[in-house]
Amino acid sequence: MKILVPCKRVVDPYVKIRVKADQSGVELNNVKMALNPFDEIAVEEAVRLKEKGVATEVIVVTIGPALAGEMLRTAMAIGADRGIHVPFDGETQPLAVAKVLAALVKREQPQLVLMGKQAIDDDCNQTGQMLAALLNWPQGTFASKLTVADGKAEVVREIDGGLETLALTLPAVITTDLRLNTPRYATLPNIMKAKKKPLDTVQAAELGVDLTPRLKLLKVTEPPKRQAGSKVPDVATLVAKLRDEAKVL
């Protein structure tokens, strides 16, 4: 069984981003970038399934600029076997990404697509659900536990009131939540090995997909700044302030 893992290159989660003065977007020049944390969890899960003998091959794919293609080496250092880079220089939007992934699924015939629940730049939380729709596959989103056996996937999902368990018939799309696993650190030998793994380039046009953004971005602005208030010396002052000044008690 093959597993396909879509990976997005995003601004590192611990970087404080800056909105551009001309409101055209967020400053990405000279900003530290990273593999989307949820996708890293998806790669780790796929590699574990391979190590358990459930999967035979883990293929990582990204749609983005040349540096995104390079970033697939990070996923291959965790243990993915090969990569596919679909070059695109602009903003990628979930529906178009899902269409590219659906076309690649037709080519590669994986039984499982494991991907992040959310890209931490656009915060869309859409692509996995859209891919499942386009393929008419079942979906197990926000997974915190995954068991794959006998053509089925049992998925424990993090939902608003607690946890939910679903049984999915493969092929299926699974999206990862934070508590699915803790990704390993890539070792130096594995980083070296990753450099030699196959990385193919496939054009979106070959797949018949137009990546032009569907939603038009009119502007990006800073949220209103919250003023820091004051420190209070003790609990008694805090209670008094909450009662008399803020009037919330």
């Binding site: 601004v11 404080k16 981003i17 909105v19 967020v26 939007q93 979930p94 529906l95 931490i120 730049d121 656009d122 915060d123 869309c124 939380n125 859409q126 859209m130 569907r214 939603l215 038009k216 971005l217 009119l218 502007k219 990006v220 602005t221 800073e222 949220p223």
Partner: peptide, 30 residues
């Protein structure tokens, strides 16, 4: 397209939504 987690409606086709963990607000048109 789907428009996620809007926080303001500017017109029937223009919406505001937080991105980058709410550190930026995107105004998008559908």
């Amino acid at each position: 397209a789907q428009i996620s987690e809007i926080t303001a409606i500017e017109s029937p086709e223009i919406f505001v939504r937080p991105v980058y963990a709410g550190n930026a607000l995107a105004t998008v048109q559908s």
